[in-house]
Computed example of a mutant assay.
Amino acid sequence: MSGFAWGAFGGHLAGTACAALAVLLVAFAVGLRTGRHRVVDVAWGVAFTAVALTSYGLSAGHGDSGRRLLVTVLTAVWGLRLAAHIAWRGRGHGEDPRYERMLAKAPGSRAAYAFRKVYLLQAALVWLVSLPVQAAGYVTGPMGPLAIAGGALWLTGLVFESVGDRQLALFKADPGNRGKIMDRGLWSWTRHPNYFGDFCVWWGLFLLVCDAPAAAAATVVGPVTMSLLLTRGSGKALLERHMAERPGYAAYVRRTSGFFPLPPRDRVPPRERG
């Protein structure tokens, strides 16, 4: 069982909070200048990367060097890929309708409301979700089977969300698919391969701290929070409310798993159905 440098870890938490806040403050300035607060979605992945890099620097001399490097690289690869994908997807578009609706209800200054309800909230969530990434740098023992399993789960998640995003982008790029529901490839196995991928990524990163059980127990709030965001917050639940009235979506819901990948129900031969 590995040890954990509790004193050093506790002392570094303010530094990582400042890193997350700094990225979101820059994003806020960009949002004000451009009039498009959708930039915060790009900043989400960048902020996780900034927290991981800050934690890597602060944890030097405290935790296992291999684990410190691995958790930093895995977080940065995920965060920067996500940021680049969202930036590419949003190029040439105006404000995100979600933020338009939110800011239309602002009681007073729209900028102040956006700062409180969007940017500060995102900075706090980045810091909270990334607690296992921060803690992994302070695990003193070498990586064991749990860390290896975490790396494998992270890779599964990254492949799932990357392939899912690519499949959806190609589908939308075909004018013949306008108004249709994407139900091919990974999207025939789960209605949200990208969100399922994020789920795997963050539980995989959590496993990297599980060689120190007490630290894992103290930071499990990170992947739990991400899971709730993906399934009940701004992820799956919000998107499905938006898609509910689309022609063909109800049928897609009936035949396709809501989150965890499962074989499409309409592919089961009639004689095997109950």
Rank of each mutant, 00 (worst) to 15 (best):
F206N: 14
T256L: 00
T225M: 14
A215D: 07
T231Q: 12
K180Q: 14
A217N: 12
S227P: 03
E245A: 14
F199Q: 10
M226I: 12
Y252H: 13
R241L: 02
F206H: 14
L238W: 06
G248L: 03
P193G: 04
I181R: 11
T190C: 10
R191D: 01
P223L: 04
E240A: 03
R246G: 01
G185M: 12
R184T: 15
S227Y: 07
P223M: 00
W189G: 03
V220C: 11
V253R: 15
G185W: 10
A244P: 02
G235M: 02
D183I: 10
P193T: 07
P247E: 03
C210H: 07
T190R: 09
P247F: 02
A251H: 08
Y195M: 08
A237M: 02
R178E: 15
Y249D: 07
G235K: 03
A251R: 14
D183E: 15
L208A: 00
F196H: 06
G258K: 07
R191P: 01
F206I: 13
Y195G: 07
R178H: 13
S188P: 03
F206W: 15
A251L: 06
A244F: 01
P193H: 06
A244C: 03
R254N: 13
T225Y: 04
V209A: 05
R254P: 06
G197K: 11
R191G: 04
L230C: 04
L186F: 11
L186H: 06
A218E: 08
K236A: 11
R254H: 13
G222E: 10
S188R: 15
D198A: 12
P223I: 04
M243Y: 06
L230H: 02
R184P: 00
D211G: 14
G179R: 12
